[in-house]
Write a protein that binds this DNA or RNA. Structure first.
Length: 862
RNA sequence: GGGUGCUUAGCUCAGUGGUAGAGCGCCUCGUUUACACCGAGGAUGUCGGGGGUUCGAAACCCUCAGCGCCCA
């Protein structure tokens, strides 16, 4: 245990990597499978293997690391489990693009070779994000790193699939699904992004004369697959036509006119074309009326099988061609262009999604979602902040069945085998399908495996020690925009697989990181902030502190580079303060002196520290990271650096600071611990230098000390601060340089005598030489009187202005107080302490006004 | 269309009934035993508009206006 001198500045790029390796090597981040310590666990939202650390991830990780590091210091068996997600579509796209540069498609390689190629890609070029997490300081347990395609996790996938299937919660059906014609796969609802696009709305007349009906559509080409026209049953305009049929133009097919409650008679003409194979609503109508579903688009979205001239056209070409053909027949009644309407796009490639009839596997979510909703409703799972809970319910209560099959190769292949006579066998782990059976070629939605993450990573379906110790996990931290993709799904599967025990106790939701004007970051706008570049410049700690400081519960935060610079400056401030403390003999050796034996400056800082510890601890525990950072920032910068160190300098210089050295050592030691979860690197460097300890990572978390709470000490120092500030203000207004020493005399109550030298030191006011003192200015401040001999003349004009301003402010304060005290309602109903406070305020302003008035009267007019 | 937020200093945001706050920016001064990535001092707000509840409202209620997000 020995102290170390600090270099003049902190160099994050040189230090951070070394510290991180030291921590990993020491095993600080490795959780114990079995332990007497209480468990605290978080599973990381697994980033895509293709991913890099972006600013949102940085925020997410900062919050998780704060919680984990704090709990570790509190003596918990803390586990932060890292890993990555195989990200089916995204990863497959990356490798397919790579193949394309070689002029190959995945079909050229074949399924097996292609998958090999993806694994090869993963082993070579994935893991960028894992390296970046090390740079960022994430205290994750690398010995437990997982990947959704690992053997263990794949086993979990097979297990749950079979269980769900056996419970009749997985089924296969022909449904309208979102189809991406570029990725050539089905997508779930949440993989589709809607945007308002400019399209066209054309109104088409079907039929002739009095029996004609006009329908409107934005996708004219789908009319080739119409199998009915529907109207509302109560719509008198069409009552005479219901039950009859009408000739579908271009195709010349007789289609029925049907009545269905679903049709909105107010919208458009009140009649709609029905294309069951290409629209989800039409599909429902088709089901109710036993209509045929005619697929008119190929998987690539080319018109096919209609027997018309349009076969072979791409959907957008066909749209134009169909409208033209109808126009020639005089059937286009109206056209609206542009027509702004919501259009779905593939989240991964932005291609316009095509609703398409297709045979897919689904999870029946109703019973699972009910359980997921109840777990939050009955308080077993808490959502923080609570205000976001309605968003959770909105989803869980209205969830559609989940399409889980994807027409991809990269992922968990669906464990369903088809026999030669249409038999269907689902294989669990260690099970084999009979010979001659063929496996379903599709793979599962990536979210299917990520939904198992909180327990598959801990060894489920095995009954492992990790699972017993760490499930359910303590908190789940993620941005609110992923609540539905992931959190809801983990709830569904966790409750199902783990016998009704939800996967986490608390869901902590944070917001998104935006640019400095609160606008969404995007590459195209050029306002994206790259945490990796910023880490090079400012270090990881500065980014972490900035993000934590902006993390108000559930709310988005704006971010600007200059604010990160500000956080870096804060680190530097702390660095210099600690360096100064070490140079002046601050120590952590020996017992802290008895509290009552200390001077008020020391008692005050200890009292403030104790309060700060209490507040920060509570704020961390309630996920109020922004406020916690604010409290730390002000304690460290304002109270410790600007006041305590300044007031103590005289004692350090004069060698009378024996107790203060120990107090300062203690305060810094505790403050660094308190800050460590947010700024792990610089606090480690400073703490080990100051204390000679092994590592702050494993240091004990600070405790608030009630006996250090010292109202009198705080009051006294508050007065000292007021006096100093007033004298500084006077000097400033008078244009007296702060380095200019002034002779002066202090007249103050006894209890301040002990602090006169400290105040003189800060204010540069010297004892006057015997017999030579002729005070030219007297400042009266509360019970203080300071006489000064100003070598230069006072600027009376400036002084009059200063005092007049104070007088106005004081009179206003007095007025407010009087109004309240003379208000009968206030006197009768306001609580006693408030009344007392206002009375005191009045007395204070009264005497203040009197003093200023006297001083003003004494001032010469010129 | 349904839901849900937001509107406070130049900018970004805290502040859930008792004299309006922070960071950044701005102005003045400044090499004093750490720190110019600094210090000291200062300026800046009818808390979106209107109404109500209350002794007392930025905060609670109603209403209007503007902006945002989610879902359809």
């Amino acid at each position: 245990m020995s102290q170390r001198e600090l270099p003049s500045s902190f160099t994050p790029d040189l230090v951070e990597a070394l510290l991180y390796e030291k921590w990993v090597k020491a095993g600080y981040f490795t959780a114990e499978a079995k332990s007497d310590k209480p468990p605290f666990s978080i599973v990381i939202p697994p980033p895509n293997v293709t991913g890099i650390l972006h600013i949102g991830t940085a925020l997410d990780h900062t919050i998780q690391d704060i919680l984990i590091r704090m709990k570790r210091m509190k003596g918990f068996n803390a586990l932060w489990l890292p890993g990555t997600d195989h990200a089916g579509i995204a990863t497959q796209n990356v490798v397919e693009k790579q193949l394309a540069t070689e002029g190959l498609s995945r079909h050229d390689l074949g399924r097996e070779e292609f998958i090999k190629r993806v694994w090869q890609w993963k082993s070579e070029s994935s893991g960028a994000i894992l390296k970046q997490m090390r740079r960022f300081g994430d205290s994750v347990d690398w010995t437990r790193e997982r990947f959704t395609m690992d053997k263990g996790l794949s086993r979990a996938v097979l297990t749950i699939f079979k269980r769900l299937y056996d419970a009749e919660l997985i089924y296969r059906a022909e449904r309208i699904i979102n189809w991406c014609p570029r990725c050539m796969t089905a997508l779930s609802d949440i993989e589709v992004d809607h945007s308002d696009d400019a399209g066209e709305l054309v109104s088409i007349r079907y039929g002739e004369g009095g029996d004609a009906i006009v329908v409107a559509t934005t996708r004219a080409e789908t009319m080739l697959g119409d199998t009915a026209v529907a109207v509302h049953p109560g719509d008198a305009r069409y009552a005479h036509l219901v039950g009859k049929s009408i000739l579908l133009p271009l195709v010349n097919r007789e289609i029925p006119i049907i009545a269905d409650e679903h049709v909105d008679p107010e919208f458009g003409t009140g009649a709609v074309k029905v294309t069951p194979a290409h629209d989800p609503n039409d599909f429902e109508i088709g089901q109710r009326h036993s209509l045929a579903s005619i697929v008119v688009l190929s998987p690539e979205a080319f018109v096919t099988g209609t027997g018309t001239e349009f076969d072979g056209l791409d959907r957008f070409e066909a749209r134009k061609a169909v409208v033209e053909a109808l126009r020639k027949q005089g059937r286009i009644v109206a056209e609206k262009r542009p027509y702004i309407h919501a259009v779905g796009h593939c989240q991964r490639c932005e291609t316009t999604v095509e609703p398409r009839l297709s045979k897919q596997w689904f999870v029946k979510v109703a019973p699972l979602a009910k359980a997921a909703g109840d777990a939050v409703r009955d308080g077993r799972v808490k959502i923080e902040p609570e205000s976001l809970a309605p968003r959770y319910f909105e989803w869980v209560d209205n969830m559609h069945d989940w399409c889980i099959s994807r027409q991809l190769w990269w992922g968990h292949q669906i464990p369903v085998w088809y026999g030669p006579n249409g038999e269907v066998v689902v294989t669990g782990p260690d099970e084999k399908a009979p010979d001659g059976y063929v496996q379903d070629p599709d793979v599962l939605d990536t979210w299917f495996s990520s939904a198992l993450w909180p327990f598959s990573t801990l060894g489920w379906p095995g009954s492992t020690e990790d699972l017993k110790t760490f499930y359910p996990t303590s908190v789940l931290v993620t941005a609110y925009d992923i609540l539905f993709f992931w959190v809801v799904r983990m709830m569904l599967f966790g409750l199902f697989a783990m016998d009704g025990i939800p996967p986490f106790h608390v869901i902590v939701l944070h917001g998104l990181v935006r640019d400095k004007f609160g606008k969404k970051m995007s590459r195209s706008k050029g306002n994206a902030i790259d945490p990796l570049e910023l880490m090079d410049v400012y270090g990881a700690d500065a980014i972490r502190f900035t993000l934590a400081r902006g993390a108000n519960p559930g709310a988005d935060q704006a971010l600007a580079e200059e604010w990160i610079a500000g956080s870096r400056n804060f680190g530097t401030k702390l660095w210099n303060a600690t360096r100064f403390a070490i140079m002046n003999g601050a120590t952590v050796e020996g017992e802290l002196p008895t509290f009552d034996s200390l001077n008020a400056i020391d008692r005050w800082i200890l009292s403030r520290l104790s309060e700060t510890v209490k507040e920060v601890d509570q704020l961390f525990e309630t996920y109020e990271f922004a406020r916690a950072c604010d409290v730390i920032y002000h304690f460290a910068w304002d109270e410790l650096c600007d006041w305590y160190l300044e007031l103590s300098k005289e004692a350090f210089a004069s060698g009378t600071a024996h107790d203060s050295k120990r107090v300062l050592g203690f305060v810094l030691d505790q403050l660094l611990r308190l800050m460590h979860p947010i700024m792990p690197f610089i606090t480690e460097e400073l703490w080990t230098a100051l204390t000679g300890g092994e590592s702050i990572v494993i240091a004990e978390w600070p405790k608030s000390i009630p006996s250090h709470h010292d109202t009198d000490g705080e009051k006294l120092i508050l007065q000292v601060q007021d006096v100093i500030t007033e004298v500084r203000r006077f000097r400033n207004d008078q244009g007296i340089k702060s380095s200019q020493r002034i002779p002066g005399r202090f007249h103050a109550p006894k209890e301040f005598a002990r602090y006169e030298s400290a105040m003189r030191f800060v204010l540069r006011i010297d004892h006057p030489e015997e017999g030579l003192f002729t005070p030219s200015k007297t400042l009266e401040l509360g019970s203080f009187k300071i006489e000064m001999d100003l070598s230069q003349a006072i600027d009376h004009v400036a002084e009059r202005a200063r005092l007049s301003k104070d007088l106005v402010a004081a009179k206003k304060d007095r007025e407010t107080a009087i109004v309240k005290l003379s208000n009968e309602g206030f006197m009768a109903k306001a609580p006693d302490n408030v009344v007392i406070e206002i009375r005191e305020r009045l007395a204070k302003t009264d005497s203040y006004i009197e003093r200023i008035t006297v001083q003003l009267a004494k001032l010469p007019l010129a």
